[in-house]
Structures are given as C-alpha cells and as structure tokens.
Nucleic acid binder design. Structure first.
Lengths: 350, 350
DNA sequence: CTGTTAGCGCCTTCAG
DNA sequence: CTGAAGGCGCTAACAG
C-alpha cells in the first residue's frame, strides 16, 4: 500500500538497474526470465503495477487520445443526434486504433481546469458552433494538431467542411420545384447573442455565423432563380434543440399561417416543426412540406419520413480523427451533400 | 515555430530564472509587472504559449478528467439511451467543475494503447456490463479512485447500485396483479458467450451476470407469491440493442404465441418487443402488456407510453462522478427504484 | 542481456 | 520579489 512505489524502488528491491526494470515491463523479451521473475516479485511485494503513464508521457510518448472540443455543455452535447453521429465517426477510428477520446467543453470557460489549454491529448477536433475563432486560437497555441469542423481555421490548418450553400440550395430548389412560394425558414443561430424567435431583415443581413450565412445564401440562390425573394419569407432563429425549435416554430406559424413549406437548417428543428404543425392539425406533407438538413438517423424514422439534405456526418468524424492521428500536412476537405427526398414534401395544397 | 520552446528557454530569453518565469504564468501576482511583461514578450517571440500540461502533470497535479470505462465499443456506447442518461449525470458534474471526461473502451483489449492501464485520468467509473471483475482488477492496480456501477467491486471499493431484484419484483407484481399468467421474459445477457435467443432452464439457472440474475430472482419472487413459476415462462436473451432485441422477441412470439405479458430487462428491449408485437398486429396493451426496465426518456415518449421500472440513471452518473472527484472513503450506495405505470400494461384480454 | 545516465517540462521549497 | 536546485516517474541511448 506504500503510496509511492516507483520503478526505481522496484529495481532496487530486485537488485537490478532501473533500465532493466523498465525493460522488464515494456520489453519483456529483452530480459532474462529469471531476472524478470525477480523484478515481478519485487513489484508485487511493493504493490507496483507497472509504469505510471504520467512519467512515460512526459518522456515523449503519445497520449493516445483525441480531444473533442464542443462549444456546448457536455451535458447537452449528446442530446443532439448530429453530435452523436459525428462522435460515432470519431470513435470508430478510435476503436480501430485502441485510442480514447476526451470530451472538452468550451462553454463557460472561466475557471475551468480542463480545457483546450490543459487537456492531455494528442490533438483536437474543434466541433464548435460558437466562438470558433477564439478556440482555434487556443488550439493553435497548444501546438498540437487540430482540425476545425465547418469552420475555416485559416491557412495551414486542417478543415473539414461541407458545401452548406449548395446543400441549402438543393433543399430550396426541391420545394420551389414543387411549386411552393411562401416559405418559413427555421434558422440556426445568426449571431451569438442568445436571441431566438422571429428574425428581422436587418438581423438576417447581419448574420455572423458562417454556416448559417452560407445556408441563407443557398436558400436565396434557389429563390432568386425562381423569381422569389428571401426577404418575403418568414425567418425564425433557434438553437439546435427540440424545445427551442418548437417555441420558435410556433411563433413562425402564428406570424405566417400562410406558409406552405418550411426550410429548416437542421433535422432537429425540422422535426420540431413537424411536431408542432401536426399538433395544430396540419398534415404533412399535404398541408405543409418540410425539408431538414443533416439527414440524421432520426430523419428517416420520422412519421412521415423527413426529406433532408444529407451530409456525411459519420464520415466527417472519421476524417477528423484520421487527420489527428495520421499527422499529415494540413488539408482542407470538402465533403459532398445531397438531397434525400422522403415523405415530408409534396406539392403545395394549391 | 521552434518546436521546443520550454519554460527554461523563455526564462533565459527574458533574463530571469525559471522559477520566476513559472510564477509569471501561474501566479502572475507574484512577479513585478515589468518583469512579467518581459517574460511575456520573450514567450511570444519564442512562440511559447504557457506551461505544458504534461510537465505539470508529472509534477503531481490532477488531470482534471474522469475516465469512464465501458465494456462495449465506443461507437455503440451512445446508441443506448441508458448510457446517454448515465453520461449526462457524469457530465453534469464535470461541467460544474470544469473537468473533462475521457471515454475508455474495454472491448477488444488486445493492442490498445489507451485503456485502464494507461489512461491519463484522475479516476475511473466502471460502467461495464461485461467482464467486470477483470476490469476492477485493472482499475485497482492503477491505484486511482474508482467506482463500480451495478457491480460489486469488493470491500473498500466504491459501488453504486440499485436494487435490481426489487425492481424486477415490482414489474412482475404489477402484471401478476393485473391477472397475467403467461409471461415472456426478455433478458439481458445471462452468460457472456455471445449467445442470444431462447433460453433453456439450464442456461437460465447458470446465469453468471449479476444484474440479470438478480432480476430473474425478482421476477420469480412475484411469480411464486402468486403460485406461478418462472420455469413455465418463455425466456429469451439479448444484448441491449434494438436489432438483437427484435430478433429474439420474434423468436419468443413464435415459440410462445400464448403469452399475454412481457417482462423486459431494459426499455430498449421492451420497446423492441412492442414494435415487433405491433407489426404482428397485436395491440398494446389490449393484446399484450409490456413492462420495461430503466425508465429511459424514450419510455415515456413511446406509443403507447411504456410502463417501466424507474431507476435514477442520471443520479447514478452524478454520484459516480462525485465519488471520484471528492475522494472520500469508499462507499456503497444503493439507489431506489420504483415502478412507473403507463399505457403499455392492462388486464389480460380475457 | 544489463547498468548508467541524461533528460522529458515543470513546480516548489528554500535561501537571498 | 527573485534565483538555485531537487525531484516528479519514466525511457532511450550508450556503454559494458
């Protein structure tokens, strides 16, 4: 039970040098069996159970774990099916390589003892909707490899992204093609000032968040091509959770009962919209068409199944993890999106 | 960009001693502003962004992260709503304390470079359905605090558990009280030999897994009190996932179409049973009553809402995390269970 | 095979 | 306030 049996103690007790003791544990083949037995006996007697990773770490080894930085609180992180799918990709490659993953929340940065600055990991995956550039700075300072997801980390930094604008355009084109003209748009955060609900034209034009902005542009691309204008549409803003989604969608329906189609920037929000619409007695897709974004697993299982912009979420996670583990040159990857048409969209009722 | 700017380099460049440089970063108050400015300038020039956690770690600090050991592959872990709820509890207290959590998979232990033996964490939470005792051994060897969930880790070790037998008894009593006599039991693994499907009496009696055994006992308590016998019931075994659940439940219905009530050892399995039953045209609860176990969030949202044995999953996670961070005496905690009656149970059809 | 030794990067007494 | 020195536990390189 002696608190501090260390390798040196074991070596001494066994009458060998520290180096030999080290070998006995790390390269058993290199040490004569009888000596090894002596060392093991000494170790057992001292209650020593092998080299302490901390020492080994300092000496220069890899941690063998990847840090995933998320902007929300850890508690909320796994509520989002997108995040689950993304983590699934990361953990797939961690599983393959016998590595671990450490979760690092960047929410509430004051007084944290475990953050980008101090996490013991081999690299970071920055999966942050908010405050991205600050975190990128921090990560860069750590001088550990990192990859930013859906965020430009600047030159010489790895990035994995999808073409948000294109995805949004596909979604809007689909609905426009069906003949819809009056749209509601359920957007992700435009600006990180904790406001949600109906969005004025000014606010929309002031959108700071890159992903949201790109998607607006994509919707607008399709609108313009059809002679419509995004200015005429009803836009609401929400954080990506069901509760907020339901609240803002309710406001949207109240403000614009005439809309026949909803473009949501995530499936979570799309499904919230569907639920609210159904509760209000609107049948989908007969009375209202809805297109989501992400194509999370839940989309296909919904009732009716949700038409959505598919993005390879799991693959994003896999690529990110590989980029960390395989320390190559920094690179930018752009993954493809596509529209998956399911049962939540149809011709407008008339 | 020099790869190895260390504290000593900064100190030298700034013309101060290493100790002072250290203070400049860790206790800025202790060093004269002008000196500190010089140090910071030197640091910036050398591209040094503060003390490396690895060094600090070795010196004796906390990692500020908790290791969660799971027996499945990480990839599958978050598919299980029970696990999500449990992690939610753990991450709540991590969020509160600005700490992190590291996921450690104990599946596939060969050739892993990141496991109980080597993870850099302050303590472990052992949330393992399988292979518990081996992992407990490993954890004990690390000499880090750890707490075992639903598993006895032996004297002097912390444990958090619920009364599985009591929970199971409540579930069975409820159905027995409604008048059911012919039961199907969907059990979690009895023995870790990768077998699933119909379970013979011999195999049931050979159950190795503690939780499963306790729950069998609980069911049987209720049966016996009503003059029934578990020997007369149809038992199937599954891993805790929807796919396997559906498969074994199908076998159960084929083998015993006469059952009027299903006792499932998890909500995931219960919901799988409900789905299969409904696909076969059996209405719940009219044609079949089902009781789950765990009371995961999905249970209440199911159609019909699932009657289930509630256990405080999130609280289990919270307690576990506290036990690690607050290094107290080892303790055994037994958390309460209760039956939540919802819409999936009713009188037998005739 | 085995022993010696020099760090890995940092923090913290302990004197000044 | 500042500087010097020891050690945290381990590994790898090198010399026997």
């Amino acid at each position: 039970m002696a608190k501090g049996a260390k390798l040196a103690d074991v070596a001494q007790a066994a009458g060998v040098s520290q180096g030999t003791a080290s070998n006995a544990f790390n390269r058993p083949g290199l040490v004569r069996p009888e000596v090894r037995a002596r060392i093991e006996a000494a170790a057992k007697k001292l209650g020593y159970a092998g080299p302490d990773p901390k020492g080994r770490l300092l000496r220069g080894g890899k941690v063998n774990a990847i840090g995933v930085v998320v902007s929300e609180r850890l508690t909320d992180f796994f509520d989002d099916p997108y995040n689950r799918a993304f983590m699934s990709g990361i953990t797939q490659v961690c599983d393959e390589r016998g590595a671990g993953v450490s979760l690092i929340s960047a929410a509430d940065a004051r007084g944290v003892d475990w953050g980008i600055e101090s996490a013991v990991v081999d690299g970071f995956v920055l999966q942050c909707v908010e405050d991205g550039s600050r975190l990128i700075d921090l990560a860069r300072r750590r001088r550990l490899p990192f990859v930013a997801i859906d965020m430009d980390a600047g030159p010489d930094m790895s990035t994995i992204e999808i073409d948000h604008r294109q995805g949004a355009r596909l979604a809007a084109e689909h609905l426009v093609g069906l003949g819809h003209k009056r749209f509601g748009i359920v957007a992700l955060e435009l600006i990180y000032d904790n406001r949600t609900g109906l969005v004025s034209r000014e606010r929309r034009l002031a959108t700071e968040e890159g992903v949201t902005r790109e998607r607006f542009l994509g919707y607008d691309d399709a609108f313009r091509a059809a002679g419509l204008s995004i200015d005429a549409m009803t836009v609401v803003e929400a954080t990506n959770d069901t509760e907020t989604g339901r609240a803002v969608v309710a406001k949207m329906f109240d403000a614009a009962p005439e809309i026949t189609a909803v473009l949501a920037m995530s499936d979570v929000l799309a499904l919230a919209a569907a639920a609210v619409a159904q509760e209000r007695g609107r049948q989908i897709p007969r009375d209202l068409s809805i297109v989501g974004f992400d194509d999370v697993p839940e989309a296909a299982k919904a009732q009716p199944p949700l038409t959505s912009v598919h993005q390879p979420i799991v693959e994003k996670g896999r690529r990110a993890a590989h980029l960390i583990f395989d320390r190559g040159e920094p690179r930018k990857e752009l993954l493809p999106v596509s529209l998956v048409v399911r049962g939540s969209t149809a011709l407008p009722r008339r």
